[in-house]
């Protein structure tokens, strides 16, 4: 499923003295199966962008197209949209409300007209994917779990619908390092199975390791859009605009400053390590 934004404009609180342009003339296309990282300073319009794609906000002008169809058309099937596009908001643990884990995870499946068995197997699959023992947790209240576990239950509720596009808003903020890594690996696996991923994150390291493409917003406008390697190689310009790059890239820049031969497009640890080993061998 491809996502296209065609010169999208969006204003908050139009017609009031508090009106402010949140997005100005945004155009880009995400093809099926891509893993796109979205970056930008707080208040640059990232969250607005994903809410537009998920159909939760309507653009002032311009169009949001899924597979070439305008999602804000009158006869576009909203249920179809919510089924195909899953959104993990910041603090997804806040959206739990059902009496049991099983019912909460199955909430979004209610409107699909699936058979009981299909719903159950989807719930089981999603919970297992998020690292739970289905039989053990299904009858418990989702509210009894710890913060991190609640978040995993909430995400299971979104994955259970088997969306074609998964949008994540700062999904790893507040997770411990191990949980972070495990979650990113899971997202990558879903991506490899064909799911399109759009992930907002401040964590440049995570995006450098996992995202193929980076979109950067600045003051509501598209500032950069390209292959992760190329976008991050322009480190000075990004940092001037308040956008951090991965630690590996910074490390490579420091090495290059001291005269070592390290490529500009070194953005992840694996690359950096290889080049450092090569330099070390060369000096011996």
């Amino acid at each position: 499923m491809s996502i296209t934004l065609d010169s999208v404009f969006y204003t908050y609180a139009p017609g009031t003295p508090y009106a402010s342009a949140a997005l100005k003339n945004i155009s880009f296309t995400v093809e099926k199966g891509e893993f796109v990282g979205i970056m930008g300073k707080t208040g640059c319009g990232k969250s607005t962008l994903i809410q537009l794609i998920a159909g939760l906000l309507t653009p002032d002008s311009g169009a949001v197209l899924l597979d070439g169809k305008n999602i804000n058309d009158k006869n576009y099937d909203r249920n179809e949209l919510h089924r195909k596009v899953g959104v993990v908001f910041q603090h997804p643990e806040c959206q739990l409300f059902e009496t049991t884990v099983e019912r909460d995870v199955a909430f979004s499946l209610k409107h699909f007209g699936w058979s009981k068995e299909k719903v159950q197997s989807a719930v089981e699959r999603a919970l297992t994917m998020m690292g739970f023992d289905y039989e053990k947790v299904r009858e418990k209240s989702p509210l009894e779990f710890s913060g991190g576990e609640k978040r995993r239950i909430a995400i299971a509720g979104i994955l259970a619908a088997e969306p074609e596009v998964l949008i994540l808003d700062e999904p790893i903020a507040g997770l411990d390092p191990l949980g972070r890594e495990a979650f990113l690996v899971l997202v990558k696996r879903l991506n490899e199975a064909g799911m399109t991923i759009l992930m907002i994150s401040h964590n440049a390291d995570a995006l450098a390791e996992y995202a193929e493409r980076i979109v950067i917003l600045k003051d509501g406008m598209l500032f950069r859009d390209g292959v992760t390697r190329e976008v991050f190689s322009d480190m000075d310009e990004l940092q001037k605009n308040g956008i951090g790059v991965s630690e590996a890239r910074q490390c490579a820049a420091l090495l290059a400053e001291r005269g070592f031969d390290v490529a500009k497009d070194t953005i992840c640890y694996e690359d950096l390590l290889k080049q450092m080993i090569a330099i070390g061998r060369g000096q011996q």
Partner: peptide
């Protein structure tokens, strides 16, 4: 703000 986010999250999950 929180109520707004929760509402949007539930709509995205298909709440009606």
């Amino acid at each position: 703000e929180e109520a707004d986010m929760i509402k949007k999250a539930q709509i995205a999950r298909g709440a009606r």
